[in-house]
């Protein structure tokens, strides 16, 4: 995978399918993390959502899939909003839909364009949830990842994983975990962890 190359709808579909595989593989771990500071449904919710994304991508346009990068992300986002069942549905749905909308009708996009579109999506997530960096949320992985993305997928993945790990000592200030106050300290945030999976799947969009 050459980070400078033009990313087409096929790349974006493969990215989403790779993310679905990773979520499926890591679902039990996501649920374990959520059991510590949430309501133990994150793995199941994400698995249900991304399984629906997989089905939606395969059945859209009679099996050919959406024709543009923007259309892939909009379809995936809409599917997550309607199928996840927890707060991560509207949050991930907003991330992908807004990014997809930002890409417009473009047939291809380069990595810098993808980074700009994802930044639009991340800003929308921050607005929807009223959260900021350091609140122990998915933003703690996504914001460093988007910052690093112009340097390539490997840099973005490393930044997301580091951001997710850095949520361990933080006290949750948003969502169900925030009810725990100081007891939320010492656990890695499940949303930041699943966000790192989504970013990590980018490198496999090339189909390698």
């Amino acid at each position: 995978m050459v980070d400078g190359e033009a990313l087409d709808a096929g790349f974006f579909s493969r990215w989403m399918l790779a993310a679905a595989e990773d979520v499926e593989r890591e679902a039990d771990r996501l649920t374990e993390l959520d059991a510590a500071i949430g309501d133990a449904d994150h793995g199941g919710n994400m698995r249900r959502g991304f399984e629906a994304v997989r089905t939606a991508l395969r059945t859209d346009a009679d099996g050919a899939g959406p024709g543009t990068p923007g259309a892939v992300l909009m379809l995936a986002g809409r599917t997550l909003v309607s199928t996840v069942g927890g707060a991560s549905g509207p949050l991930y749905g907003t991330l992908l839909r807004r990014a997809g909308k930002a890409l417009g009708d473009a047939e291809t996009v380069d990595v810098a364009g993808l980074a700009a579109a994802l930044r639009t999506g991340v800003d929308a997530v921050a607005q929807l949830g009223g959260a900021a960096v350091g609140d122990k949320t998915m933003l703690d992985a996504l914001i460093p990842a988007v910052d690093a993305l112009p340097r390539g997928f490997a840099a973005a993945t490393a930044a997301a994983e580091e951001g997710a790990k850095a949520t361990v000592p933080l006290q949750a200030r948003k969502g169900r975990a925030s009810y725990l106050g100081e007891r939320s300290i010492g656990h890695q945030d499940p949303g930041a962890t699943s966000s790192a999976l989504l970013v990590g799947a980018l490198a496999r969009g090339g189909g390698a």
Binding site: V81, G89, P90, T94, G129
Partner: peptide, 14 residues
């Protein structure tokens, strides 16, 4: 609370 608020906000934004 929680996801109920976010889900409706996301639907309105749609």
């Amino acid at each position: 609370l929680g996801s109920a608020v976010l889900t409706v906000k996301a639907l309105l934004a749609e």
